[in-house]
Design a protein around this nucleic acid. Structure first.
Length: 321
DNA sequence: AATTCATACAACCGCGACTCG
DNA sequence: ACGAGTCGCGGTTGTATGAAT
């Protein structure tokens, strides 16, 4: 007898998450930390399957997530890492801690694929890439196990490097999001709070009209529009629901304003609880990142001579790490 | 203004890996 | 060693949104 699908149960809600559900989920994780997803729906009362909860958290609510507008560096990195690792989005995402694997995957499928294709056809190219296969690695038959092994080796090297020279990493990371674990923690929490702040702000700005048709857009707007939303824009339209949520938010995160400019404040108010999320399965900012400047250097160096790209475990690699 | 089409992205699904009794 | 339960990943789908007609 096979395993029953986790989402086949009756009464399990599907589709876009509502802000209320987001808040419930974040509140729960705030208290209990991520993990034990199986218990989340029952403990929170959410009519969602555990998978859906985990996905929502990792792809959307998780602290430290940067949304939209991939930078040129990020693009290069993704292209390069995709070349090295193939479609192992989770592995690629581990090098871009602010991005989720889903985000990267989507970005690859919607932007980079086309971009590369254009480039390929633009260069007319004797390239033999098919429609879906742009990766030069595909030209070299290579077992997946080998890729995994190489990634693991890289990870191990990375970990070793970090363990041996934390100060150096901290200093070389001056351009990256955080320089110390402590600040990374704070950053994560600020980001989490920001996420919710944006969510609520957007929600209040765009009060739900009907649960089915609007929630997705609302949720999306709430995050996407956070930068441009002023403090006293159409929040008044929120009515009581907004106020209630505002209170919920305040009680949750301990600050009064939903303005994302208050992230510094949220920083402080939340950092004390930071340990709650530290065992997050996905590497967080600053916790498991390889020295960024080195990586950047490596990527940029190799970008200038792509034929030199091996798999990261060759002799060249030794000087990288 | 209405309709069609293209794009972006959130969410779902199935499968393999992992953990634990 | 084995099986059940759980988790995580990658591929795919559904839908909201914006652009074009």
């Amino acid at each position: 007898m096979g395993r029953p699908p986790c989402c086949d149960k009756e009464g399990v809600k599907k589709g876009p998450w509502t802000p209320e559900e987001d808040i419930i989920l974040v509140t729960y994780i705030q208290e209990h930390g991520p993990g034990n997803w199986r218990a989340v729906p029952t403990k929170t009362g959410l009519s969602r399957c555990s998978k859906s909860c985990r996905l929502r958290w990792t792809n959307y609510l998780r602290p430290g997530i940067k949304r939209g507008n991939f930078t040129e560096e990020e693009e290069k990195m993704i292209i390069h890492l995709q070349d090295l690792l193939g479609n192992r989005w989770a592995a690629i995402a581990s090098y871009l801690p602010q991005r989720t694997d889903n985000d990267i995957k989507n970005y690859w499928n919607t932007h980079l694929k086309k971009k590369l294709k254009k480039l390929q056809t633009g260069n007319n190219s004797e390239s033999n890439f098919g429609d879906d296969e742009f990766s030069p690695t595909e030209r070299i038959p290579r077992g997946q196990w080998e890729r995994r092994l190489q990634t693991d080796i890289q990870m191990a090297k990375k970990a070793l490097t970090e363990a041996l020279s934390p100060q150096k990493i901290a200093s070389t990371n001056s351009n990256s999001v955080s320089s110390t674990k402590e600040s990374a923690q704070s950053f994560c929490y600020a980001s989490s709070a920001d996420n919710i702040a944006r969510l609520l702000k957007g929600w209040m700005k765009n009060p739900i009209k009907s649960s089915k048709s609007s929630t997705s857009a609302v949720t999306q707007n709430s995050f996407n529009n956070f930068v441009s939303v002023g403090n006293n824009d159409t929040a008044s339209s929120s009515g009581t629901k907004g106020e209630v949520l505002s209170e919920t938010f305040e009680s949750l995160f301990g600050f009064e304003s939903l303005d994302s400019s208050n992230s510094e404040f949220s920083h402080r108010s939340l950092s004390t609880d930071a340990t709650v999320l530290q065992d997050e399965s996905k590497p967080e900012v600053g916790s498991e990142i390889m020295p960024f400047s080195l990586l950047e250097k490596w990527l940029l160096d190799e970008a200038s001579c792509p034929e030199k790209v091996v798999l990261g475990c060759g002799d060249d690699d030794a000087q990288v790490f």
